[in-house]
Amino acid sequence: MAAGGDHGSPDSYRSPLASRYASPEMCFVFSDRYKFRTWRQLWLWLAEAEQTLGLPITDEQIQEMKSNLENIDFKMAAEEEKRLRHDVMAHVHTFGHCCPKAAGIIHLGATSCYVGDNTDLIILRNALDLLLPKLARVISRLADFAKERASLPTLGFTHFQPAQLTTVGKRCCLWIQDLCMDLQNLKRVRDDLRFRGVKGTTGTQASFLQLFEGDDHKVEQLDKMVTEKAGFKRAFIITGQTYTRKVDIEVLSVLASLGASVHKICTDIRLLANLKEMEEPFEKQQIGSSAMPYKRNPMRSERCCSLARHLMTLVMDPLQTASVQWFERTLDDSANRRICLAEAFLTADTILNTLQNISEGLVVYPKVIERRIRQELPFMATENIIMAMVKAGGSRQDCHEKIRVLSQQAASVVKQEGGDNDLIERIQVDAYFSPIHSQLDHLLDPSSFTGRASQQVQRFLEEEVYPLLKPYESVMKVKAELCL
């Protein structure tokens, strides 16, 4: 049975990233139509530049190519590739079939990587351009969430054990800070992308030097003109047959890092959902379990974690691919890159769409948070109580021993009897502590235990987050809708 299948058929496997999760716009960027249309555009740009620099290419040939950029006979191309065992030459023939007058000058002087690699770089750039505003929107939604809850005390956790208090907004800023680093890295790697350009079979530009009869300047002009037509500021000066596969490492490393950030955020949300302090959106008709109707599973956060793990592992592909590119190139890269580049971007696209949807509907339960604080705060307040007693004339050592005994009794009630923490009640009825009984409410005010959390939130948002989001103001209103 021949390899390949009808990918629109229910009898043929289709990647869930495309069929179930990723956005239509990201799927289109990695589609065959987008790819092969870009090949034709690159052939047109090459012909236009070659004509401008004096090669015998007519206006009629150029116009014929322009008129057929979208006229792609995919069936013919597939048949040609089956016959020739070469995808680029299959599309040269297919393009030439609908451009008979231009057929002889299509791909003039070029090698397969002229269309293959340059198209990949265009796709990487455009895919990054799709991700950047999506990530900015996630940051914006979380920034709104953090600002609104900047002063809401909550129990902090280290080692997932109760620690000092923080605020809900401050905790959210930990998430935002990681995503801001990801946004900066995505922008950097996007701006650092260079075009492969017009380089020939081993990167020496020998074929173009021959076409222009040894004119170095025209060869350099050709490279520059096509690079500018493709919208790049610069091209690699040095290439082998391909652009260095280190570029793929750079791009997928940034995406993998984004995956790590999203995994951490969504894990926190899942843990908070278990504590009943916070939940992701839950639709009115949504079913959490087929057997347990009360369940409210954090399905979206779980999906993000599941896909983020996949995204983090994909960076190993370009690392290994770059390491086995012998001399000017081997074909070890080809099949692998067809999979890992598309999957990385479709996965990143999915987790950003999902995280935006989550961040637009996060639900906080202040009463649950308050109750958990009441359970733990008495123990945390013991040092403040000791200091207040010393100020009232008591002995630190005597007070410490009193607190120690009462704390152990209260802990026994919590752990052995399943009761509430009654340390404060014990202190309130103990005559030894009568000098500070009137101060206990103040000493137990949760806001006095959150330090500068709310001020940190305000400063972080104003100095770091809002300036970073400013270039994306025009796209901030787009909502994230999930079908599944």
Results as ranks from 00 to 15, higher is better:
198 V>L: 14
314 L>S: 11
351 I>T: 13
351 I>Y: 04
460 F>P: 01
313 T>M: 10
295 K>S: 04
417 E>V: 07
131 L>W: 02
395 S>T: 05
37 R>V: 09
242 T>S: 07
54 G>C: 09
298 P>H: 03
278 M>V: 10
385 I>V: 12
193 L>E: 04
424 I>L: 13
400 H>A: 01
175 W>C: 01
458 Q>N: 13
451 G>Q: 03
279 E>N: 01
97 H>M: 14
176 I>Q: 04
406 L>K: 10
425 E>A: 11
329 R>C: 02
92 V>K: 01
69 L>E: 08
211 L>W: 01
461 L>C: 10
231 G>L: 09
285 Q>E: 11
399 C>F: 06
226 V>T: 10
282 F>G: 13
231 G>M: 07
346 L>Y: 10
50 E>G: 08
436 I>A: 03
401 E>W: 06
209 L>T: 11
65 M>F: 06
82 K>G: 13
435 P>N: 09
335 A>E: 02
123 I>L: 13
147 K>E: 10
208 F>Q: 02
101 K>G: 12
4 G>K: 15
392 A>N: 10
206 A>N: 11
442 H>M: 12
203 G>E: 02
58 T>D: 10
200 G>M: 03
204 T>W: 00
328 E>G: 04
482 L>F: 14
49 A>K: 03
197 G>D: 04
210 Q>M: 06
171 R>A: 00
289 S>A: 03
103 A>K: 13
130 L>A: 08
421 N>V: 12
97 H>S: 12
193 L>I: 13
336 N>G: 14
140 S>D: 14
170 K>T: 00
92 V>P: 00
484 L>Y: 14
28 F>C: 08
428 Q>Y: 14
224 K>Y: 13
61 Q>M: 12
92 V>S: 07
89 M>L: 01
224 K>A: 13
397 Q>I: 06
473 E>S: 14
163 A>D: 00
284 K>D: 12
52 T>H: 13
122 I>V: 07
87 D>F: 01
39 W>M: 12
135 L>K: 06
463 E>V: 11
419 G>C: 13
114 Y>P: 01
435 P>D: 07
255 L>I: 09
267 T>I: 13
179 L>D: 05
61 Q>I: 07
397 Q>G: 08
18 A>W: 09
240 G>E: 01
279 E>V: 01
244 T>P: 14
203 G>M: 00
26 M>I: 09
460 F>I: 05
86 H>W: 01
376 E>C: 02
316 M>I: 11
235 A>Y: 15
322 A>W: 14
191 D>N: 13
366 P>H: 10
191 D>G: 08
132 L>H: 13
197 G>P: 00
32 D>L: 14
81 E>K: 01
261 S>I: 04
119 T>Y: 10
